[in-house]
Amino acid sequence: MTAPAPHILCIGSVLWDLIGRCDDAMQHGADKPGRITRLPGGVAMNIAITMVRFGFTPALLTAIGRDAEGDELMAACAAMGMITDHVYRDHGLPTDRYMAVEGANGLIAAIADAHSLEAAGGRILAPLTDGSLGTAQAPYRGLVALDGNLTVALLEDIAADPAFAAADLRVAPASPGKAERLRPLLSHPGATLYVNLEEAGLLHGTAFDTAAEAARALSDHGARRVLVTDGSRAAAKACGGQVLTAAPPPVRAARITGAGDTFMAAHISAETAQADPQTALDRAVQAAAAYVSGKDPT
């Protein structure tokens, strides 16, 4: 049976999120009561989840282990309406995991174990060259969401790979610690970068005070299009010398992990619906704020 055509490819981390959440503010060394949940996560997965909510059918290009956790994760992805036919699975690679602790004052600490995705390397991209989704001679021309959990070497290859030459490439770092991995994609002619203020500073090598300042600097530095978020403060978009800003509504934080991925997915959805640039940015900040408050971002 032929798989349906995807609306977007989500490339990167698909794993299990283990999130501990406390309703009180937490400091280093705190021991508090709260809730611990396990749910499908990872940057590529979080984007795919939100795209599904907006009516899109995403296809996943990732690595998931052939273990019990991997089988359960594959079933969860399929149940949400995602295309899993192109997922790379290896008996020797366990399913990746992410662990975070969140308090009322935000993310306290997190550890991402994406070693299997890194070990799989370019094998997750085979469908883009073997004819399943495209070839070097007839590259994939649709939307691609790419996350920074891939290795530096693989991201460098993608930046020069003909298989990505015609794609509408939307790029996000997995975390500030991996933001600098995206430098090879800064000047990609089809790339739009989605970063937070800290990640923007790491990419540029400069600390910025506002999202607008960071977006303009990255645009001047060679980025074709860049969007910068700054938590509860105004987000910004820079493209072709123009900088737009949008402030999110004030909300009480019920969750943090996945907010940036929701912002990115909502912006892609708005642009696909032909929203003008300011409206698309407004919808993205509103969706991210709704997500943080615990509501449906759509």
Rank of each mutant, 00 (worst) to 15 (best):
L9E: 00
D147L: 14
D168C: 06
V292D: 09
A253V: 14
F54M: 03
A275Q: 02
P176T: 11
L128N: 07
L203V: 13
D90W: 07
A214H: 03
G103H: 09
C10V: 09
H86Q: 10
G240H: 02
I49W: 00
L197S: 02
A280V: 04
A5R: 07
I268W: 06
D230C: 15
Y291T: 01
R283D: 10
A136V: 13
R35E: 03
L203T: 11
T192G: 02
A109T: 14
G134L: 05
E199D: 12
R181I: 12
L197K: 10
D130N: 13
R123Y: 04
D24M: 13
P94C: 12
V251W: 01
A223R: 07
A138S: 14
L9K: 02
L197G: 03
P139T: 04
D71E: 14
T50R: 08
I111C: 01
I11Y: 11
S175K: 12
T229C: 03
D113I: 05
R89S: 09
P162W: 04
A215I: 12
M82N: 09
R233M: 12
E156N: 11
V228C: 07
E156Y: 07
A247D: 05
I19Q: 01
T192Y: 10
R225Y: 06
H267T: 01
A236T: 06
T257S: 14
